[in-house]
Design a protein around this nucleic acid. Structure first.
Length: 376
DNA sequence: TCCACGCCTGCATT
DNA sequence: AAATGCAGGCGTG
């Protein structure tokens, strides 16, 4: 089936959104990049995006079963644009926030080296669908971006609804709670798909959303948390299997409009000690409840109402472990001849690499990596 | 209440 | 080349 894509566009500066960063900095795991076109499935269509200096271009492919009439076309155009504006939190102006952060950053930072905020522009927090965010972040424990992406891909292919095909890739929607609790076999199937101990967490969480035993745990109430305060949202999420304080905070920040929440892991803890004036043991491996709380409030006091957003920039700029899948690919390329880069014809990985090569600020990182590697 | 431990897989190191 | 270590958050006892 061949489709003629019709592209529309709207103006956005790259300092407001930089797709190549935002879509692979560890907050979303389901976007694919094929020939510099980003793609993602919703319930009824595949959404396609590409970005140049001044514009984001968007297009869509309706689900296979839907007929394409001019009326639907027009509706889908609007729906897609609305989705993009909402998903990327576009009403929130990043440039102004960055100015505030740079100012505050200077006051608290230990060294006066160039602020991460002037180097890594266009990184913003998405406003993602709460159910997908919940399941994705249950997958994130003890895990890396590459593997989480693969797991999300697997769960859609196995339990989602077929949407359509584009560029030789089949696209599926993200499975619902009903899809994931339909049979106890779900858990063992997820295990087979490489979910490990998270298979049980996902199945049990899905069950809580569909079973009468837990009348308060519903999709509607999950969505309602966007209107509730942080404590309410956090406590609700902790009832779910596989959701602890860190995962709950990720969901609060990335799906539930809690812009001031900083999810704390040991990496964030290290940033607090190394770059800011947080006093704590440098060798702390396991974090207790108090430390977690203290670090979260520490960053909130520095950056204020959008502390979670600010933290995501610091985190992304501190690339050493983050995106390790992507970085590993770069190292492989630099060091070994082409024949060695064969086995994984994984389109996601391959295309990520492409995106990086075309992204000017990432090229700086490329050269950094190269230097580090040669010095070894 | 706090803590140590096990859980799963993929990748890097030895 | 097989064995080991690491990543690093949640649940359990």
């Amino acid at each position: 089936m061949t489709v003629d894509l019709i592209w529309k566009k709207f103006p956005v500066k790259q300092v407001e959104v930089k797709l190549s960063k935002v879509l692979r900095c560890g907050q979303t795991f389901r976007w694919k990049n094929v020939n510099d076109i980003w793609s993602y499935t919703t319930e009824n269509k595949i959404i396609l995006l590409k970005q140049d200096e001044e514009y984001i271009h968007y297009s869509w492919i309706a689900a296979e079963h839907m007929q394409t009439q001019s009326k639907i076309n027009c509706h889908f155009d609007k729906e897609t644009l609305d989705f993009i504006k909402d998903y990327f939190n576009l009403p929130i102006k990043l440039e102004t926030l960055y100015e505030e952060w740079i100012e505050k950053d200077g006051l608290f930072k230990i060294s006066q080296q160039k602020s991460a905020f002037s180097k890594f522009t266009g990184i913003r927090i998405l406003r993602q669908e709460p159910w997908e965010t919940l399941i994705s972040f249950i997958c994130s424990s003890n895990n890396n971006v590459k593997r989480i992406s693969k797991m999300c891909d697997n769960i859609c292919t196995e339990f989602g609804k077929y949407i359509n095909e584009y560029n030789g890739i089949k696209y599926y929607s993200f499975p619902t709670a009903v899809d994931l609790s339909s049979s106890p076999k779900v858990e063992s199937r997820l295990r087979d798909l490489g979910f490990g101990y998270r298979a049980k967490y996902i199945y049990q969480t899905a069950l809580k959303f569909t079973s009468d035993e837990f009348p308060d745990i519903t999709l509607k109430n999950l969505y309602q948390l966007r209107q509730e305060n942080y404590e309410t949202a956090h406590d609700f999420l902790l009832q779910l299997t596989g959701v602890g304080p860190k995962v709950a905070d990720c969901i609060c920040l990335m799906a539930l409009d809690k812009h001031d929440i900083v999810p704390v892991d040991t990496h964030v803890y290290q940033i607090a000690i190394r770059d800011y004036k947080f006093k704590g043991k440098k060798d702390l491996k396991t974090m207790n409840k108090k430390t977690y709380h203290d670090i979260r409030l520490f960053f909130k006091e520095i950056f204020g109402d959008f502390a979670g957003w600010a933290q995501s920039v610091l985190f992304t700029s501190d690339l050493s472990d983050l995106n390790n899948g992507v970085n590993k690919i770069q190292n492989t390329e630099i060091n070994i001849d082409h024949t060695s880069v064969k086995q994984e014809q994984d389109s996601i990985v391959i295309e990520r690499k492409r995106g990086i090569l075309l992204d000017p600020s990432s090229q700086e990182q490329d050269s950094d990596k190269k230097v580090k590697y040669e010095m070894k």
